[in-house]
Design a protein around this nucleic acid. Structure first.
Length: 121
DNA sequence: CTTCTCACA
DNA sequence: TGTGAGTA
């Protein structure tokens, strides 16, 4: 499929899709006319890219990780054992990030639901 | 009409 | 990352 279809199906802009390719996250074939030709599997790949990007991983890390995610039909297996230490660090960083967000949410919820004393603000 | 590359009031 | 230009 060409870039337009992948953009519609993944909800990602064509601009971003070209950027992902530039960063080595996607490697579509090219038609003789120069148009990018994406595979069906790229739809899932783009979803993974968005998820990892949203979690704070760099495009460089994602580029290394993607080819190492072996789809076993059951789940994803680590195709590159040497990346595990790094991945565990990322996971811990995400966990810490979640904790901070949870703390902030709790604070905001408290402020939002607490009855203000007369005359406040 | 769609995609491509390149560039930036 | 968006957007517009000028093509193929």
């Amino acid at each position: 499929m060409r870039i337009g279809e992948l953009a519609r199906r993944s909800g990602v802009s064509e601009r971003a899709l070209r950027y992902y390719e530039e960063q080595g996250l996607l490697s579509p074939n090219r038609t003789p006319s120069g148009y990018r030709d994406f595979e069906e599997s790229h739809v899932d790949t783009v979803r993974r890219i968005r998820s990892l990007l949203a979690a704070g991983l760099s495009t460089a890390i994602i580029a290394e990780l993607l080819p190492c995610m072996v789809d076993t039909g059951e789940g994803l297996a680590p195709g590159c054992p040497e990346l595990l230490p790094h991945l565990e660090r990322e996971r811990d960083r995400i966990t810490a990030s979640i904790d901070e967000l949870t703390t902030a949410r709790t604070l905001l919820t408290k402020v939002i639901t607490t009855t203000p004393p007369v005359g406040a603000c």
